[in-house]
């Protein structure tokens, strides 16, 4: 889901950076008010977890590859605003050290992976956890969140032929089915299983880490 340089036209890149500016601002502001002694190292390790799970590429049946992001897991533990910061950091390192995701597409990539995934995942988890339990809702939330993000990325790719010729050559008719297929069949199930397993482990061994809202009242940034 890391859009490289040269696929998005200048207008899309600029708009996506502009959209991210207030999101980054509120993420820093909200997180700054809500940092307890547990949360500081936790943001750093979850950011590294996110970086690392994105290195595990999985084969998609159509011959491409896909990976999970860890955004829903991050948001379940620390809330969506801290996730914006942690995943943005992972994406910055990926772009500047490893060329994974373009520097001009960084705004778009942060929107898709550091904003859409944690927010969608967090609110689905929150809506479902009383009804179907934490483990199942974590899995469902991770599955839906990465798929919505994939379709958002596909829209960014797919509008280019209409607004910026010379950039991504494929339109929405190809980008949406391809991105949806990769994430419905591969990255989605991986994200669902990993997120559910980790939440299940935490529920048994460290339920306090799933209940930081109760122990540090403002951590979730609502």
């Amino acid at each position: 889901m890391h859009i490289p340089d040269g696929y998005l036209g200048p207008l899309t890149c600029a708009v996506m950076f502009l959209v991210m500016v207030p999101i980054w601002y509120f993420a820093l502001k909200n997180t700054s008010k809500r940092l307890g002694p547990k949360e500081v190292p936790m943001i750093a390790v979850l950011s590294a977890v996110s970086f690392l799970v994105m290195m595990f590429n999985w084969p998609v049946p159509d011959g491409t590859t896909a990976h999970m992001v860890g955004g829903t897991l991050f948001a379940i533990i620390l809330g969506p605003w801290a996730s914006v910061i942690g995943i943005t950091v992972a994406l910055v390192i990926q772009a500047f050290f490893f060329g994974d995701g373009g520097v001009t597409a960084l705004g778009a990539n942060c929107f898709n992976m550091a904003f859409v995934i944690p927010f969608v995942g967090y609110f689905i988890y929150k809506a479902l956890k009383e009804r179907i339990g934490k483990v199942a809702s974590a899995g469902v939330a991770a599955y839906i969140a990465i798929n919505i993000a994939a379709v958002v990325a596909a829209i960014e790719f797919g509008v280019q032929p209409y607004i910026a010729p010379g950039y991504c050559p494929y339109g929405l008719n190809l980008s949406i089915p391809a991105m949806a297929f990769a994430h419905l069949t591969t990255a989605g199930p991986v994200a669902a299983v990993v997120t559910a397993v980790v939440v299940g482990y935490l529920e048994r061994s460290r339920p306090d880490l799933l209940a930081l809202k109760e122990t540090s009242p403002n951590i979730r940034g609502e």
């Binding site: 820093l28 940092l35 750093a44 950011s47 910061i85 390192i93």
Partner: peptide, 20 residues
Amino acid sequence: GVAATMLMSLGVVKTIELWR
């Protein structure tokens, strides 16, 4: 990558603590 990610996120978090 893991080392850089952890250092940079710690740096950002420490900076916002100063800001606070």
